[in-house]
Write a protein that binds this DNA or RNA. Structure first.
Length: 462
DNA sequence: GTAGGGTTAG
């Protein structure tokens, strides 16, 4: 277009900015913004929001907030989407207090939180294991006239699966479907993953069939879920069947698909098969990344082929391909197990030089090696370092304690919910709040289930 | 015809 003397309009530019950001080429996207300005196609809120989200993902929050400031300076008004992006990234970083502040700031700026905001917050609280706040958000959402939807449902299903409450998760989806909620491939994928993680392979496969019978076409991400599940159940050959099915349907597997299968063979101790598949994929334009490298290294170490592991590591470095903390920790662990502590220390120095660590995994490996060699005093020194870096490794899990909650209130609320006396359950919840009493997780789940039931009409799910 | 929420490899 430019060569033919045409000036792309704002829509065209924004589309390309989005494409670049998706690929992680945020710098190029930002320089495109300069080009836009020089051509007097002024970047708008869509351009900035795209760049801000991309910066959060690929360049870190400092750069992202700089763009927010720039946006203000350029006279482009922040909108609800801008705020939702900021809320989302606080949630992704697990900073739920700050996410709450961002939401409050959104209100101050004159925007009411919408379904995106609430679903983001609900998911964030679920991921943080704070079911009480997740439930409170859901309640608030309902009181503002916003309807829970498939996104809300999927967050709760995921949280239930994480708690190993699979029966409850399944029952929730069945009841939700009866009430008019749309179950989609993510709902199924989440349940399937939950069953696989709890070694209920048959149920997982049954749900896969059920999903397909319903005419839901799984995307690559959902194919990855079933392939991953089969691999973790040491059924990599079956996983490859699904992989071939994916190819037959004309889908292109992504980077993850190949890594999962390579990992599957490594888990089975079949390093040769892993390399055969690796080679097959490389010939088909698969670009191995640092995760591929780490998987292969672990596989080779597991199979006792240390020489091969180190030669792979060296070739990788010579080729200038990136390595990370996991790469080093993988090798350091195996060296410690083999009693080759000097070499392990050398690698630790090397990773320190590259500012990749050491982290808690490095220290744990070193402590194990030293203890095994009877070098207790040195081990204790590293123990101190470990506690400095991550005090939570050994201390008690406070969320567990908080999560245990008050039995009496929890049970009463559980019972009321089972009897569908949600109003009374809510009253009791408010009473417990006033007394500063926390409930157990199952009580919060029951209350959330109640909120899903409260929903009267069905909103279209995109 | 452009931006924001749920599943997602070591």
């Amino acid at each position: 277009m430019r060569a033919n003397g045409m000036v792309p309009d704002i829509w065209t530019y924004n589309t390309i900015v989005r494409g670049l950001c998706d690929e992680g080429k945020v710098k190029e996207a930002i320089s495109l913004r300069d080009e836009m300005e020089s051509l007097r196609v002024m970047p708008d809120e869509v351009t900035y929001n795209t760049l801000i989200d991309g910066s959060f993902q690929w360049r870190g929050s400092a750069e992202a907030f700089e763009l927010v400031e720039e946006m203000k300076k350029m006279g482009v008004k922040l909108n609800a989407v801008t705020h939702n992006i900021m809320v989302k990234w606080y949630c992704k970083e697990g900073k739920m207090d700050e996410a709450g502040c961002a939401m409050a700031k959104m209100v101050e700026s004159g925007f009411s939180p919408d379904c995106f905001t609430y679903n983001t917050m609900i998911n964030g609280y679920c991921k943080a294991g704070n079911l009480k706040e997740a439930f409170k958000m859901m309640d608030e959402m309902g009181r503002k006239g916003l309807k829970a939807d498939t996104f809300t449902l999927n967050s709760i299903v995921h949280a239930l699966c994480e708690e190993k409450l699979l029966k409850e998760a399944y029952a929730l989806t069945v009841n939700a479907a009866k009430r008019g909620y749309i179950l989609d491939e993510v709902t199924y994928g989440t349940l399937i993953m939950g069953y696989f993680k709890n070694d209920q392979t048959n149920k997982a496969m049954k749900l896969w069939d059920e999903m397909k019978e319903k005419g839901i076409i799984p995307s690559v991400a959902t194919y990855n879920t079933i392939i991953r599940g089969l691999c973790h159940s040491l059924k990599t050959d079956q996983a490859v069947d699904k992989f071939n099915e994916l190819l037959d349907k004309g889908f292109a597997p992504d980077e993850a698909t190949s890594n999962i299968i390579i990992h599957g063979y490594c888990l089975e101790g079949a390093a040769e098969k892993a390399f055969l598949f690796y080679n097959r994929m490389v010939e088909n334009s698969f670009k191995p990344d640092v995760i591929t490298c780490n998987i292969l290294l672990r596989g080779l170490c597991k199979a006792g082929m240390l020489d091969k592991a180190f030669s792979l590591f060296n070739t990788w470095i010579i080729k200038g391909k990136p390595v990370d903390a996991v790469t080093y920790n993988t090798l350091i662990s195996v060296l410690c197990k083999e009693g080759k502590l000097d070499e392990a220390f050398d690698l630790m120095t090397e990773m320190e030089g590259k500012k990749l660590g050491p982290d808690q995994y490095t220290y744990t490996a070193i402590i194990g090696g030293l203890t095994h060699a009877g070098r207790t005093e040195e081990a204790e020194k590293f123990m101190e370092k470990l506690l400095e870096t991550s005090p939570n490794v050994i201390s008690e899990d406070t969320s567990q304690i908080l999560g245990s909650g008050d039995m009496e209130y929890s049970e009463q609320i559980n019972n009321l919910c089972t009897q569908r006396k949600y109003k009374e359950a809510m009253k009791l919840f408010q009473e417990s709040e006033q007394k500063g009493i926390s409930l157990n997780k199952s009580a919060y789940f029951k209350l959330m289930d109640g909120l899903l039931k409260r929903r009267k009409s069905i909103s279209k799910v995109a």
